[in-house]
Write a protein that binds this DNA or RNA. Structure first.
Lengths: 221, 221
DNA sequence: TCAAATTTAAGTATAAATACTTAGTTTTGT
DNA sequence: ACAAAACTAAGTATTTATACTTAAATTTGA
């Protein structure tokens, strides 16, 4: 491969500028466009068809994982490198299931970063450190370093929460009580209780803490 | 001023690399050292005495605000530019009270970033956008653009929480209930209740949501 | 259009949290 | 060493949440 065309998607202008400066130090990599959320990323990718999309997970409008899932549905020749700027490796499984070709943590050095980009661009996979071996073997059946993107059925909301339940969930996670939730949605407190009860049941959790963890784990909000 | 010596403190290597690349594009600014947390920042500053310390708020070991407070106690000729990579303007007041000379949000452009660094380096103040005028007038008595760092009494824990209460607070904020907290600290559930009750009173909040907000606002954990 | 799913909300019993007070014991600062 | 502060934990009343069930009204999809 001669020149690698990259699209950057991150809601931090600073981070984008930074990665851009860092990446273009190297000959052979060019940032051809940018986006500040998942939706924008989809547009930009559809126009530019880059070799690699570098995308952050947490962004407004549409998160990085969902964007990667979409892109893998639509384009077979756009590789995706997911960046987790904030948290640990908690999204790695979802990233892979969404069809990401690489996953990097915030702790990544400049060197690791460039390695990841070039590897992914040439049809390989790059998953940060220890994760790589373990996860790849478990989730994708042994096709590391091939040009074939893993065809894993994207699981979207394995808990089948209803719209109202998701709504209640997000309010519960804002630590609001049933009374406040009820007022906000203009329903009775008892109804709010029921929705809360039902969603706790569906998620198989028995308190706020577990709920919060599970919701985060499965990116339900 | 001829050359501006800068120390970067951020726990994201990537962000550090990025800012470095971005900043050194410009002639006249040199990153002479880096740190990945507040404690390290203190050490590095004591050794290098840079003109400007660019420091992120959220870091392990010691956060950026506390580090700035320390630096303002120890050195009168080191300017500090606080970066809020994650959140809005919620820390601006604390940053000023800690003696920060500048405050930038994640949304800052490359241009604004460089402007802030040069301004702060030359003894001026740079606070992001609209915040600037309002806050500076209210908190520091009219000394914008002077070389004198604002002498505001640093308020440390205005609520006078006891050690145990802070401990309980952090567990409460992990959404643990009194039973679990009690078990974890090997005290009775009733004792946990009392601590919780007392700290809610001291913070003048009446539910988890308000507690969570207030704790964040005053960086109590 | 018609059954299935969703949303609404009441009833009831139990468990837990809240809002205090009182009070004994331990720790800490001077 | 001795008082103040902090930590401990019980009692009691009230409110809120949990754990269901039942069931009506509304919405939605094939």
């Amino acid at each position: 491969m001669d020149i690698i065309n990259v699209v950057l998607a991150d809601d931090h202008v600073l981070v984008r500028d930074g990665i851009k400066a860092l990446i273009e130090d190297q000959t052979g990599i060019v940032v051809i466009d940018e986006a500040s959320n998942g939706k924008e990323a989809l547009e930009v990718v559809s126009i530019n068809k880059p070799h690699v999309l570098i995308i952050d997970i947490r962004m407004p409008e549409m998160n990085g994982i969902d964007a990667v899932r979409e892109i893998n549905k639509l384009y077979t020749d756009v590789r995706t490198l997911v960046l987790s700027m904030h948290d640990s490796e908690e999204y790695v499984v979802q990233a892979i299931q969404a069809g990401a070709d690489g996953y990097l943590l915030k702790g990544a050095s400049k060197e690791e970063f460039l390695k990841a980009v070039t590897k992914v661009a040439s049809g390989g996979k790059y998953f940060t450190g220890d994760v790589s071996a373990i996860i790849m073997n478990n989730f994708v059946n042994g096709n590391t370093n091939t040009a074939v993107a893993p065809k894993v059925v994207p699981k979207e909301d394995p808990f089948k929460l209803t719209k109202r339940e998701k709504q209640i969930l997000s309010l519960v996670l804002e630590l609001k009580n049933n009374k406040d939730i009820a007022d906000e949605l203009k329903i009775s407190k008892r109804t709010a209780e029921v929705h809360r009860f039902n969603l706790m049941k569906k998620l198989e959790v028995k308190n706020l803490m577990e709920l919060s963890h599970k919701a985060k784990e499965f990116r339900l909000v």
